[in-house]
Design a protein around this nucleic acid. Sequence first.
DNA 1: AACCGTCGCAACCGCCGAATT
DNA 2: CAATTCGGCGGTTGCGACGGT
Length: 216
Amino acid sequence: MESKNEHKKGPWTVEEDRILMDHIRVHGKGKWNRIAKTTGLKRCGKSCRLRWINYLSPGVKRGDFSEEEEDLIIRLHNLLGNRWSLIAGRVPGRTDNQVKNHWNTHLCKKLGIKKGKTKVGSSLQSLSKKMGNNPTSVPSKLNFEPPSNCNSATEAKTAAKDDSQSMCRFASTQEATTEDNNESSFWLSKDDLNLLTPFLLEPLNSYSLDFVWDCL
DNA sequence: AACCGTCGCAACCGCCGAATT
DNA sequence: CAATTCGGCGGTTGCGACGGT
């Protein structure tokens, strides 16, 4: 156990940045907790990691978000909720922190979304954990087969492009039917996705995000 | 010019799962 | 196999910058 008091807090100085970058240049990323020991930097491992990822990493894009980026984030957020790391992973050069901040400060306002306690990602995890012992409590057989049942990714794409009505269709286990048959397939409005009944996201976890990407 | 409220962003915190010991 | 450490995530906070009065 390390003493918490040893670790400096607050904004990073140029000198600290230099030390961290030098260390990573030589040793590479990882082993964050050992950086303090080997460099004398009075920062905890977490702080070093965050500083690198959010600021020092050469891949990080600075400056304003473009309209394309904003559009992408909005659509990804509709699908994924507050899973910032997943969203950021699909927005080149942007970190989860940047995406999260931009969402909370700009896009929420832009879209007229009130900030609420919609802790989608983590609540999903904790809820599914709680439900884990009782799988029957979850409609576990939601059949999420977008490429065929979504009437192709392009349909989802078209739907998602309509900002006011963006929807994503999930098909039930029974079979994929036409969208007119609301009993075996259903649509989620953007608002529904924002409220995010957690089990609806469950199937997403088992699919490659590439599919989600294809739907955009 | 001074004060005050708001905004935006960097950084911290707490929690969790995975990896290691 | 249990305990500990590490890395990662999302939510939250603190503070400087900025604009309005």
